[in-house]
Amino acid sequence: MQSKIIVISSGKGGVGKTTATASIGAALAMKDKKVAVVDMDIGLRNLDVVMGLENRIVFNIVDLAQGKCKVQQVAIKDRRISNLFLIPASQSDNKDVLTPDDMIRVSKELRESFDYILMDCPAGIERGFENAVAAADEAVVVCTPEVSSIRDADRVIGLLYSKQIPPKLLVNRIVPARVERGDMLSHQDVVDVLSIDLVGLVEEDEQIVIATNTGNPIVLQNNSKAGQAFKRIAMRLNGQPDLAIEVPRVSKSFWQKIGSRISFGKWE
């Protein structure tokens, strides 16, 4: 297949870009695709610890861009999932050591070795963002159902369109009970405001914290709703764009479930 570069961005920090990159990357690799996840947060690397690969770093993306190593040397193989590789950020440099032109050049090399290349964008819309999007074919914009995150997402979506990189939206950390109460914007509200297509909905899930603590992929956790949501997002990115979006719901008791089966079966 022709390789695809997908940038995971947000504008606002801390909304789940790194979590999404690690999880979607793992899910794509489990579909037998060769995947590289690239930490573009130069100076503030994180993707390595989230994936539990922090002890294996020898080279980084800046070394690759500066010709100090080859793709095969910089890419760290995941411990659990074959076909999944991490390309770490450099911790000592700042974001200005790379230029968008460097990234276009490096990306050409990466395309030869991988089916999917996921770029984990830093927060903000400055140089780090410019570098991460430079060679991207598509974008996933992550936001949470909060005003500041949505507003920043709108800015990033505008920038991506102006660069001809089509974005899709991932709404993260949805708390269904709060949505039902009317204290949290629903995914539909977010879509209305941003007028953009969804790539998936991920709910607030304690298991993400546990997975991150231990450096394990959340998509291997079959009882994690967030993990399963990330798997479906990977499927949508990987040739099944029309896979139905599942809306996180308040878990109901047995009798409530029976009730909703009877009355709303067709729409559930």
Binding site: V147, I150, R155, D183, S186, D189, D192, V193
Partner: peptide, 17 residues
């Protein structure tokens, strides 16, 4: 509901942005 207020404020802010 508070989310309705949030939605209206956002829609307005984005027009301006």
């Amino acid at each position: 509901e508070s989310k309705d207020t949030a939605k209206k404020r956002l829609q307005f802010a984005l027009v301006y942005d």
